[in-house]
């Protein structure tokens, strides 16, 4: 039983991270109908910036709590600036272009960001500083670490904050209006460009938080880390129904659970023929099965037809 519980915890921790990154994809998609393929790299930049500022601050003997908060803030600001720039440079000029054109610029942006990060932070894997002892807690026979507990709590807080922002604030209403119908929103006096920029910045801020959390959890940072994470988060967003915020959260957590239960039990389920090497196959099969029965994802209601 404790093994099963442990796998659920593993899945939840992993899933919380996916959910945060998936939110970035889904917000942009909801508004622009565009897959922001460079989003994974924003997560990486967030992690890298946090790494450097944490190293500097800890080197200056700043109190660890303060150092963590400040470097998280620095990472958020850096990522917001980056998100804003990416949108201005690579997406805005293509707003009326064929819909695959921004996909290519996104790939270009990914390559550029990765290469720049490689030049700035080097090719090697960096250890992410750990100012506190990461103590273990027993939960009914399973174990969870401080950092993991922190990840789940922060993710929950961020997501509820985001929901409040979008459903209760003026800006949120503008965002929903643009997602619903950009030209009508513009006629009603919403500044579309501003809303789009703000959406990118918001998504990037979440990416920075996710980047920080991933690095703290695994203790390792590398310029290539954004690619797989971005891909998984994108899958999660689609699973939940891309463009739908609750869907992204649900999809993220579900993907985390599917992966960890898949890796844990696929061998027993298939009588030892398949092992944890088929973890991703299992995850994609679940995704395909979901999409066959619900072609717009678990919670997606909007039909995406822009082909």
């Amino acid at each position: 039983m404790d093994i099963f519980l442990q796998q659920i915890i593993n899945g939840l921790v992993q899933g919380s991270v996916y959910a945060l990154v998936a939110l970035g994809y889904t917000m942009v998609y909801g508004i622009l109908g565009l897959i922001n393929f460079a989003h994974g790299e924003v997560v990486m930049v967030g992690a890298m910036v946090a790494l450097t500022s944490l190293q500097v601050l800890l080197g200056l003997a700043v109190a660890p709590v303060l150092a963590i908060l400040v470097s998280l803030f620095v990472a958020i600001v850096a990522c917001m600036a980056l998100g804003y720039t990416i949108e201005r440079v690579a997406y805005r000029p293509l707003r009326n272009a064929p819909r695959l054109a921004p996909l290519i610029t996104a790939i270009g942006v990914s390559i550029v960001l990765q290469t720049l990060a490689m030049m700035i932070w080097g090719r090697e894997y960096h250890a992410f500083p750990q100012p506190f002892a990461n103590s273990l807690h027993a939960v009914g026979g399973a174990i969870i670490t401080d950092v993991q507990l922190g990840i789940v709590i922060v993710a929950l807080l961020m997501m509820s904050g985001l929901m409040l922002l979008i459903h209760r604030s003026r800006f949120g209403r503008a965002m929903r209006a643009v997602a619903e119908n950009p030209s009508a929103a513009a006629l009603m006096g919403v500044d579309i460009n501003r809303v789009i920029s703000a959406t990118f910045m918001l998504g990037s801020a979440l990416a920075a938080v996710a980047g920080f959390m991933v690095s703290a959890n695994y203790g390792i940072v590398h310029y290539y880390m954004g690619f797989m994470l971005g891909l998984k988060a994108f899958t999660a967003a689609v699973l939940g129904g891309i463009g739908n915020l609750r869907g992204a959260m649900l999809g993220g957590v579900m993907l985390g659970l599917i992966e960890s239960l898949g890796a844990g039990y696929i061998g027993d389920l298939s009588g030892g023929f398949f092992g944890s090497n088929y973890q991703d196959v299992f995850a994609f099969f679940v995704l395909i099965a979901v999409l066959v029965f619900r072609p717009t994802g678990l919670l997606g209601e909007r039909v995406a037809e822009r082909a």
Partner: peptide
């Protein structure tokens, strides 16, 4: 199985299919 899917949903399923083939070969 993907006939009903459109746009980006199709993209992610085909992406998954490509990975599945690679993983099996691996």
């Amino acid at each position: 199985p993907t006939l009903r899917l459109r746009g980006d949903y199709l993209a992610i399923v085909t992406l998954g299919f490509g990975e599945i083939v690679r993983i099996f070969m691996n």
